[in-house]
């Protein structure tokens, strides 16, 4: 029996986590390197409010681009991101049940939790956890967040990041991601190969480093301006401060940095300093978020007492 199609995999996992009380959110409408960067994770793990969310997130890593030629590497891959805040005591079992729900019979496979600690230096975020390995294939990053935006987390959140292409290829028994059935008729390659080629060409060859650098500075400048004004202006209503816009601008910087990096356009000393600049924005946003958020109620508090 052939495994789930790519879209069925998304349905099943969404359904599974919805049943666990997760809000099934929409993919974020900006370029991100990982589902972690979406506000539904980056901001919501901060502060004391309980939170459960699951969403699919296309994630871009320009340096991983292979012009659509390599059957295992993608510039843009698809993550299923789950946040459980605070994590239940049986969080690992819950995760294993999610695998069962997509048709993986754990009695006939070898599943391992191998140490793999995760860090996103541009976000000031890191965590402790594992890569989950299924018959030698890394299918999920399982992380207990320790810090985000440079802030200690109270409570800790668990982040599950499923690599959907790999899981789909595993379920369908194929070694080539482009052969994965998206539905009964359409292959993953039909949906995405052209995009992989085009994005690879741009990120590796066509991108103008000058323009990318200028854009980086423009976005950074705009974010800094917003954040400084917010710090100076204590009289206006904090709820009106366009925090998420400042964060979007920070994410734009992060993506532009990745393109510059893939393009080989970042010099020796520049690399670390560019990363530090993005991190500073991210940490500022996190701080403002926590200040503004204090005292508000989570919609999940009643449904699920902490």
């Amino acid at each position: 029996m052939p495994g789930l199609t790519f879209q069925e995999l998304i349905f099943k996992l969404s359904q599974f986590w919805a049943e666990q009380g997760c809000v099934v959110a929409l993919p974020y409408d900006l370029e991100v390197g990982a589902g972690t960067m979406c506000p539904e994770t980056f901001l919501r793990v901060l502060g004391p409010e309980p939170w459960r969310v699951a969403y699919v997130q296309p994630s871009r890593r320009p340096a991983d681009g292979r012009y659509g030629e390599n059957p295992h590497r993608l510039l843009k891959h698809t993550q299923m991101q789950v946040i459980l805040k605070p994590p239940p005591a049986d969080v690992q079992d819950l995760y294993l049940k999610s695998l069962t729900s997509i048709g993986i019979d754990l009695r006939h496979h070898d599943i391992r939790f191998e140490e793999d600690n995760w860090e996103a230096p541009t976000l000031g975020a890191w965590g402790i956890g594992w890569q989950v390995v299924l018959d030698g294939l890394e299918i999920t990053q399982f992380t207990y967040f320790q810090q985000s935006g440079g802030l200690d987390l109270e409570p800790i959140s668990v982040e599950l990041t499923y690599g959907l292409e790999r899981i789909a290829a595993f379920l369908q028994g194929t070694g080539d991601v482009y052969q994965v059935c998206w539905n009964e008729k359409v292959r993953y390659g039909d949906m995405r190969r052209a995009e992989e080629l085009e994005l690879s060409v741009y990120d590796f060859e066509a991108a103008s480093p000058e323009t990318c650098r200028t854009l980086f500075e423009l976005h950074e400048g705009e974010a800094s301006r917003l954040l400084e004004e917010a710090a100076d202006d204590v009289t206006s209503d904090p709820a009106r401060f366009p925090l998420r816009k400042a964060y979007e601008l920070c994410l734009k910087c992060s993506h532009l940095f990745n393109i510059l990096d893939a393009r080989g356009a970042i010099s020796v000393t520049e690399r670390a300093s560019l990363m530090a600049r993005v991190r500073r924005l991210a940490c500022d946003v996190a701080r403002v978020y926590v200040e503004r958020q204090s005292g508000t109620q989570s919609p999940l508090v009643e449904a699920e007492p902490a």
Binding site: R73, H109, D110
Partner: peptide
């Protein structure tokens, strides 16, 4: 070395072989 008692259906071996082939192709 697996952490389960065996692989009677050969599913696990198939998985490992696919992953290794992908790594080697890289």
């Amino acid at each position: 070395v697996l952490n389960v008692d065996g692989d009677p259906k050969g599913l696990i071996r198939g998985g490992h072989e696919r992953v290794l082939a992908a790594r080697f192709s890289d």
